[in-house]
Amino acid sequence: MAEFRGLGFDPVLGRPVAVTEAARRCTEAAARLGDSPVPGEIPEWAGPSARALTDRAEQAAAGLADLPDALRSAAAVLDTWAETLAAHLRHAEELDLRATAARRALLDAEDEVERAETEAQFSPSTAEVATARARLAERRTALDRILTEARELERAHTAEATRVADRLRALGDGVPLPEAPDFPTLATQLETFSAAGRELGVTVARTPVTPVTPPPGAVSAFANALGGR
């Protein structure tokens, strides 16, 4: 995590590498889910239990049918967000360098004012004091401008993160899958890079089909596909 000592705050919360990793996991999970076998037909001589199991498996497969596409779409959104986040981070680092230099200049100007005021006690002239104070005011204004620009970047970053979160949320519009698995590892990663990432857990737990109860092992398999367990 970058430290912005010159600015005094972090205007760009998040880590591009974490976003990229989350996108990669989504892509891999989509591929694994796409390789899930389709239940075969039950022969006529099969009993009620076998038929019921097949019906249940078919319902579960239907419930996951649209999830790989949602995961791939989420990965694309996250990859774009990682690029945007990286650009914002570069801007923040440039502002931090400028702010650090401006703070040093401000300290020098404060020292100059102090020296001028001390010397003025033994001299009738106050011209040097006025000059030093004017230079101090200029240095303060310069730092304030940089900090204002950083705050504007922070607002723009937050607004874009919200838009990304809305896009991720829209990918999962529909009825949520029951007993949606918890992905502690992925959720921890997503928490590190802004509100946008936190919506991914909602996205991957939704699908626009009638909810079904997955057969034993389906939930754990899905969690493993995302690397959450």
Rank of each mutant, 00 (worst) to 15 (best):
A70M: 07
R155A: 09
A70G: 14
W45L: 07
P124S: 10
L168E: 02
A75H: 04
A60L: 08
T162F: 13
A62L: 15
H157R: 15
T100A: 13
A86N: 05
E44W: 06
P68C: 11
S125G: 09
R155E: 07
A137K: 13
R90D: 14
A105P: 00
A102Q: 01
L107K: 14
A46D: 11
H91Q: 14
T84D: 05
V77D: 00
G47Y: 01
T80Y: 07
R145S: 13
L67V: 14
D66T: 14
R72H: 14
R98C: 03
S123V: 14
R145D: 04
T54S: 15
L78A: 09
L53H: 05
R98T: 06
S125V: 13
T80G: 15
A165T: 03
V164C: 12
E110C: 02
R90P: 02
A142D: 09
A75E: 01
A116V: 02
R72F: 11
P68V: 05
E119H: 08
A74F: 01
H157F: 07
R51T: 04
A161D: 01
T131C: 06
T118N: 14
L143S: 03
R155S: 15
G63T: 04
A74K: 04
A75R: 03
G63C: 09
E83Y: 05
R133H: 06
T162V: 11
E154D: 10
A62C: 09
E112Y: 05
A92N: 02
E114V: 07
T80K: 08
H91T: 12
T54F: 04
R151T: 11
W45P: 01
E154I: 04
E114I: 07
H88K: 04
D96Y: 03
P68G: 08
A87L: 09
G63Q: 08
R139I: 03
T118H: 13
A76F: 05
I146A: 04
A92H: 00
A50W: 02
A86V: 08
L71W: 06
R90T: 14
A156I: 14
E117M: 10
W81S: 02
P68E: 03
D66C: 08
V129H: 03
D144P: 01
S49I: 14
E94S: 15
E110M: 11
R155G: 06
A74I: 02
A57Y: 08
L143T: 03
A105Y: 00
A105K: 08
A161C: 05
